[in-house]
Amino acid sequence: MRLVVLYTFLLSLLVMPLQVFADWQRFAALKEKIQDMTPIESGLELSLPLVADDGSAVPLKVVFKGRLAEDEQITRLWILADKNPNPDVIDFEISEHIPRIELSTRIRLGESQTVYALAQSNQGNLWLAQQEVRVTVSGCLMSGDDTTAEKVMSQPRVALPRNPITGEAAELRTMINHPMETGFREDDQGNLIPQQLVESLQVTRANQPIFSANFHTGTSANPFVAFFLDQFDDLTFTWTDQQGQQLSE
């Protein structure tokens, strides 16, 4: 008798995952991008900490390991958070010059929620990955300090791999200093502090765009993006803020 109960339960568990993944259907911003398509739910790997002590800079990595048809490549990748005031976190435009889809960044999560990664190929296929993150503020982490930073971009940084070999994929890191004011914060008088964001990082090689990251309110302050290339000469990195100001490296 117990056996029957056990196996019925196990069977119901197999059915459950389909239920869980269908939750994205209720997430409007994501549904808008997926429409009536059926995203492939394996191949795209999203990793974030299960518990984030501090929601302001949660490390995120997304890797594509799925199967692509001939001449198929991933061209777009979006990260969305279902309970942030603005569900757009960060998105990427990826050219065929990116040898490996392995992207790292730091994101903001306002509360515990599910983070989704959606990848799209030039043939219109979609891949979906998700992970729940619990956001707490550890008591000992109370910093008791609220410094208001200058709202302009500064200190653009690019770290190329130490011994880059043309043809071999290696990781580069980029970062620029900017507070990424979301427009959701209030000052001491209760007025909303106006939004001030870095909008994008564009990477070009010989003036040809090969990779872009578009930042949103969900991107952490001092936007950090790491990605892979296999050719490291003649690169230009341009950050643009909402005022249209640009800084290049």
């Binding site: 501090d54 302001s56 800079a57 000992c140 982490l141 109370m142 910093s143 008791g144 300090d145 302050a221």
Partner: peptide, 12 residues
């Protein structure tokens, strides 16, 4: 490896 730390204002 962080942008803020425990009791930061007091320590500083």
């Amino acid at each position: 490896g962080k942008d803020n730390f425990s009791k930061q204002g007091l320590f500083t």
